[in-house]
Design a protein around this nucleic acid. Structure first.
Length: 103
DNA sequence: CGGTTGACCAAGT
DNA sequence: GACTTGGCCAACC
């Protein structure tokens, strides 16, 4: 049995380019309500480029901070063909329903 | 072992 | 729509 965060990384690495997911979805895939634990795993994020943590957003589809900064996250997501809708000070993923990855 | 933390969530204000 | 509150869980100290 791997540690919880290790399982998060495994799931995350399953997400293909151009797809995004949410912390809640990951926690649900792990049969747990530990969204915060998933978040915690991202915070440590030992393998930044290896684990596509930039494809993880809030369940509200809002980009809430990122280790390398929201700016970097947005740039990467745009490269992944994911449309970002910038609204006020916060940004959201547009057409998330079509780019959401189902585990 | 107990308290703190953190890139959150849902509901309330 | 934006901010606050309480709760949630695993890892860390």
């Amino acid at each position: 049995m791997k540690t919880f965060d290790q399982q998060c990384y495994d799931l995350l690495m399953l997400v293909p380019s151009g797809k995004v997911t949410t912390y809640k979805a990951i926690a649900d895939a792990l049969n747990s309500k530990a969204y915060r634990a998933v978040w915690w795993a991202m915070n440590r994020n030992p393998d930044a480029p290896q684990v596509p943590c930039h494809r993880v957003v809030s369940s509200d589809w809002s980009l809430w901070g990122y280790a390398f900064g929201c700016d970097e996250k947005i740039k990467i997501l745009k490269t992944e063909w994911i449309i970002i809708q910038e609204r006020k000070w916060k940004m959201y993923v547009k057409d998330f329903e079509s780019c959401q990855f189902i585990f």
